[in-house]
């Protein structure tokens, strides 16, 4: 490559980098939100609307709740932390990394099964040769999934656990293993199964095997936008965000 071409390329890269880093309109306040992967659809919709209404740029990063909590603990700037459980926000609160958490939604579990994958009922989960994907033991969906397996009526939990072929870092990853057919079935949130319902079938899990899945939100203790962050969370509980959550299949915290 000619030197002039190289210089031009570098200049272009720097120029692009400068635009990207500035985030465009500097007059807008910025809200950094870390949200559990299962909230992707609902919170993406709500964040856009909230940003427009409050003249703010809401940046949401999605991931496994435990992974996001680790980032918060390591000091990654976070104004709002939305977790798929109560444990992570409580631990962060105890460590002084976030303010007092509040619950804003609840969820239910369902078995997501690959179409034509041979899993048609809960008892099929224990059949030999069935390949299951669960969340890893440190991720909420992994803990909930194991709770459900242990409480499935009339199903041999040991046999089901023997069929686990992968422990995924978050719920999206579990769904992906099922939709691609790599696994025959997985235990996921109703909301994630809904989002991918064209590509999988679902098997209901009875109430007796449902863990209590409350989603907690907390404001980062180092947040410079604590008021805005609090309003963001309030909107999830009672405002526009609640509608987005309901549309995605989440339930209220009353149940």
């Amino acid at each position: 490559m000619k030197p002039t071409a190289t210089v031009a390329l570098i200049a272009l890269a720097v120029a692009l980098g400068a635009c990207g880093g500035g985030g465009g309109d500097n007059s807008r306040t910025r809200l950094d939100v870390a949200a559990a992967a299962s909230l992707t659809k609902a919170v993406t919709a709500y964040a856009r609307q909230f940003g427009d209404a409050n003249h703010a740029t809401v940046r949401v990063r999605f991931g496994g709740s435990d992974e996001l909590a680790a980032q918060v603990r390591q000091g990654v700037p976070t104004d709002v932390f939305l977790s798929a459980d109560q444990t992570q926000p409580r631990m962060l609160h105890a460590a002084g990394a976030v303010h007092t958490p509040v619950s804003f939604a609840s969820n239910r579990l369902v078995v997501a099964a690959a179409k034509g994958g041979g899993v048609n009922s809960l008892s099929d989960l224990a059949n030999s040769g069935v390949k299951l994907a669960l969340g890893g033991p440190s991720v909420p969906i992994g803990k909930y999934g194991r709770f459900a397996i242990a409480h499935l009526p009339g199903v041999n939990a040991t046999a089901v656990l023997k069929n686990v072929r992968s422990e995924e870092p978050d719920v999206k990853s579990v769904v992906a293993k099922v939709t691609t057919g790599a696994a025959n079935a997985g235990i996921v949130y109703v909301t994630d199964a809904n989002a991918a319902k064209a590509q999988l079938t679902t098997i209901a899990i009875p109430q007796s095997a449902q863990p209590r899945i409350l989603y907690d939100a907390a404001v980062g203790s180092k947040s410079k936008q604590a008021d805005l962050a609090r309003r963001f969370i309030d909107g999830l509980r009672t405002g526009a965000g609640r509608t987005d959550l309901q549309n995605a299949g989440f339930l209220g915290t009353e149940q």
């Binding site: 072929r165 422990e167 995924e168 992906a176 293993k177 790599a182």
Partner: peptide
Amino acid sequence: TLMFAGSLRGVSQ
């Protein structure tokens, strides 16, 4: 590896 082989102790982790 994570996408194709998954993650399971002793098998693909």
